[in-house]
Design a protein around this nucleic acid. Structure first.
Lengths: 234, 234
DNA sequence: TAGTGGTCTAGACCACCGC
DNA sequence: CGGTGGTCTAGACCACTAG
């Protein structure tokens, strides 16, 4: 790892995301992390402050630092992971891949993303189901030039988003949020009325300038909202 | 101001937001800000790093720090200002206050916000019009206990959001994004078809724990999207 | 009241990159 | 090459609050 604070942050994030440190778990005090990593307090403080600003942990004087309770609402502008979120929230979750194919990118998408037309993309359509109710429909393009191993991945254990998050660290991301009326096909998939308002979250991620993936995720508008909480200081 | 880095950040943000430092303007070097505020380099570095993470400025070694180019799309999770955005984008803009009244907060809203029921709120409904097309309908509550002078403000020059941004610095904010179908009243106001999907942005802001304002802004879903761009480290 | 996090200092070395 | 930002140190004092 290049920087010490990156390594510390990655370690803590991994322990939280894996469930090894569940919500409410007390995180080592700053002086303990200082000793563990052999660094100064400023360094661990920066890491913990950043994680707190991102909502992953909660810090209170005297009481210490604990893993934050997962919100049942999604934070806008964070890379989301249905499987992880469901595990943290204790919800039954499964997914179903409805379509899979390798296709050259079409002109419109190439323009949108900033790639040359014809680049080979793995195209996946996935339905995310929680407690037996369809909660989201995901259309995803994965750039096989950046992530060639995705072409051989069956996506049986983890949905594409989770698999990608674990495999390809992203360095830049872009989110777009829109509202659309469900067409009949979408309504059928999500078990909602045709014409219902849906929230569409479009996310594109890059790794060091190389395009990784685009996901268009459609949520029933009456069951989902995106939430962000923040302070100017961060 | 309580903390030095807050004061530095507020100064810089104010200069950027007011247009005194336009996009591309070079921001003083860290050592210059150290001298100006009589503080250590770590302090100004924290401020500038935060502003860079928020996308307000761009930093490059050797080249220095400059005010970032504004995006033509709205950033989710930033306090938005129709008037300012329109000016920056060169669009004709005006607004119309459709309703104004002082009312005690109802029980549901009090619960939602975390206030005691009956607190006096200034209630405003505002239509935002750009190039003669209604682009957003805003329903806003302003806490007269926190901002008493709002009760006497006619809101002739600036819409309520702009006026508030200039007058009351916020320390915490929460955004909620949802998708809803337009009812007939909303459809008429926004000149769209009844049932059209609309994006609803709900924003609440606090100043040092005191509730300031809640705004529910409804956009035609086909004409607006919220965009955020970010990197993991911040 | 004692222990925690919040902030700040006055240095330091290094990587990057425009000149 | 030199100047910039990125990171880090080894302290310090203070604010808050649980016990």
């Amino acid at each position: 790892m290049k920087h010490l604070h990156q390594r510390i942050r990655d370690d803590i994030e991994a322990k939280i995301m894996s469930g090894e440190w569940p919500p409410g778990h007390r995180i080592p005090y700053e002086h303990e992390l200082m000793a563990e990593y052999g660094c100064s307090r400023m360094t661990v403080n920066k890491v913990l402050s950043t994680l707190a600003a991102n909502g992953l942990i909660t810090r209170r004087r005297r009481a210490g630092t604990v893993v934050a309770e997962p919100s049942n609402q999604q934070a806008v502008l964070q890379i989301q992971d249905f499987a992880l979120e469901a595990v943290r929230a204790g919800i039954d979750y499964h997914f179903k891949i409805l379509h899979r194919g390798v296709e050259p990118i079409d002109a419109a998408a190439a323009q949108r993303i900033g790639l040359s037309a014809g680049t080979k993309m793995l195209c996946l359509s996935t339905l995310h189901v929680m407690d037996n109710i369809p909660q989201a429909f995901e259309q995803r393009l994965i750039n096989l030039a950046t992530v060639p191993e995705a072409g051989e991945e069956p996506f049986t254990d983890d949905p594409p988003g989770t698999w990608l998050l674990r495999r390809v660290p992203w360095t830049d991301a872009e989110h777009i949020v829109r509202a659309v009326n469900a067409d009949s096909a979408m309504a059928k998939r999500l078990q909602i009325q045709s014409g219902s308002a849906c929230l569409v979250l479009e996310r594109r991620t890059w790794q060091a300038g190389a395009f990784v993936t685009e996901a268009r995720i459609t949520y029933p508008g009456d069951r989902h909202q995106l939430v962000g909480r923040f302070s100017p200081v961060a």
